[in-house]
Amino acid sequence: MIEIENLWYVYESGFTALKGVSIRISNGEYLAIMGKNGAGKTTLAKHLNGLLKPTRGYVLIDGMDTRDYSVAQLSRKVGYVFQNPDRFLFAESVEKELMFTLKNLGFSESEIPSLITRTLNDLNLSQFRNRSPFSLSGGERRRVALAAILCANPDYIVLDEPTVGQDFYEKERLAALLERLNKKDRRAVIVISHDVEFVADHIPRTITMSDGLIVSDGPTNKVLTNQLIIERSNLKLPQISELFTLLHEKNSHIPRDIVNIEQALEAFNKLTSSRKR
């Protein structure tokens, strides 16, 4: 469990990025943290693996107070996947990239080979094992970056804006991977994003932030359909929600808390079958 209690953070420049944030994340949860650029999402995320230490308040990762542990120690539990893979790929081969993480995090020589093989398989990167990461395409490099963090099997995975600039196939692949990590491998997945459509499609819980404060925290189809919350969080309604808001106004039998196509189809089914009496 991750417990964030009354977290305040003030940057050296004097800017207060977090103003008393409290959140609980249980093992195996899947959630999104949303808000406009500058709302404090990344600042918050960096507290999860100790890159930033609280100015006030505390952050507990499975009972470990982040102020008492180094980033390296916390990284065994919390894997942070940065947005830009080119920020940290540097090794001669994909295999060596994964080895770097595993060695640094203290895995033994005997454990490492199997962890590498499994991760490469899971992410469809086996054929690139001995290739230099620099010779791969953008999407492939992103998967390598992901692999370099996932190989350590962290219990909590944080992804910073993982969908920027990606087309449909890439997003679906990512969503499938995250779903597998969450459902099958029982890892907590925390996605920081301002991509309303992606979150609406795939992520069950949403926390929205604005100006260093939490605006809302709840099921995605309640949070992202609430006009007030959307406004205060500087976001936009998912397109399907916009549609159903209009439909609901015309006909109150039509439900309003619909955020994606799947839910829309379900609603449609229910309504039309209930009419067939």
């Binding site: 890159l51 980033v71 390296a72 990284s75 065994r76 920020r87 940290f88 995090l105 370099a148 350590a152």
Partner: peptide
């Protein structure tokens, strides 16, 4: 700023 980001990223992989 970029070198700071890179340091953050590598520290998140256990680099001390």
């Amino acid at each position: 700023q970029e070198s700071q980001s890179i340091m953050d990223a590598q520290m998140s992989r256990g680099l001390e």
